[in-house]
Design a protein around this nucleic acid. Structure first.
Lengths: 194, 194
DNA sequence: GTCTATAAACTGATAGAC
DNA sequence: GTCTATCAGTTTATAGAC
């Protein structure tokens, strides 16, 4: 078996559909069809739509943290690592698979479904705050910079950049927003001719 | 008559439900119930759900532009007006009624419904760009600042701030993101002891 | 303008056979 | 584990009376 049993295919199909259509817009039937599984199979492996969505959301959140850490834990100065993170290849027009869930009322209303979304952004802001604090400590960034607030700004630029890109049906505003925040950050960079 | 006929109540109910639950999550039945109108009434005034949604979205977009212009066209320096805009009283946890529509696949798939969303953000970025360019021209802001890119960043911080606030079920990350971008912008401010 | 009746398809399951 | 049958309720309308 090549690790693609029905349970696995159901989770992956749910991840795709949650990203494309959100929780409210995704029906069990659509999931089953994409996964090539029947009703009986789905309800054997999962108690229902919320249970399956939870498995899908947890996996997506974990994947997102892993990808972000690739840039945060990489080489370079704080600004270099944040630039690498912001300019990383992304499916901009599809948006953020975790962030889009915040617009799903049924996800936000269910504490179990909401938890992984909350935790992802808490972690992301915290980790970015660490990178920025490191930059300040090393003298790469001005001491006037507030690491926690700036971390929230950087995450917000990404999430908001997706919104602008989808509204425009173009990646251009996303890239502009990223350029803008990096331009602002550059003014806080200290010239450390080490 | 106090300008609250059935047509009017249907549009206002749709505006509320689109904000709370999105297009996919809003049924004609729910709209009718909130408006206190029957099926016949709704289908007499509007050809269907998309037609009613279009009227609702257009009104919401227009209202959003009007509110933004209150701050952009107000007194003060560029940074003061942008600060007023970002710190304006908002229902942060409800998010942006226009921005949330970008996550609605059925809205983005319909050119008529999508147009007012697109136009709103084009206008918003353009208008903010003008304010920033004015700040540069007046010597309030560094000439190194890119008005168009920074405008996209400011709009993205707002839209992303809503995402972070909803994920956390708290306005705190929104306020942090706003503080962060204003802190970065302050570094670009020129000391003009006029 | 608004009402009620009707309807075909979909939603989110449960039940029990295989 | 997976299948088919069934089901109560919802969705998005249309038709025609009032």
């Amino acid at each position: 078996m090549i690790t693609s049993d029905a349970s696995e295919r159901l989770i992956e199909s749910t991840r795709e559909l949650l990203w494309e259509r959100g929780y409210v817009g995704t029906s069990p039937k659509a999931i089953q069809q994409r996964a090539g599984a029947g009703q009986g199979s789905m309800y054997h492996h999962f108690s229902g739509k919320p249970d399956l969505a939870l498995a899908a959301i947890r996996r997506t959140a974990e994947e997102m943290r892993g990808k972000a850490e690739e840039q945060f834990g990489g080489p370079g100065t704080a600004v270099e690592r944040i630039t690498a993170y912001l300019r990383r290849e992304r499916d901009v027009l599809k948006g953020c698979p975790v962030g889009r869930l915040t617009q799903d009322p049924d996800v936000m209303a269910d504490p179990a479904l909401r938890a992984p979304v909350d935790e992802t952004f808490v972690w992301l802001r915290g980790r970015l705050g660490e990178v920025l604090a490191e930059g300040v400590a090393r003298g790469e960034l001005s001491a006037a910079l507030d690491p926690a607030a700036t971390a929230a700004t950087v995450v917000a630029v990404l999430q908001g950049g997706y919104v602008l890109a989808r509204a425009a049906d173009s990646t251009a505003p996303f890239e502009q927003a990223v350029d803008g925040v990096l331009g602002l950050l550059a003014a806080h960079a200290q010239s450390t001719a080490s």
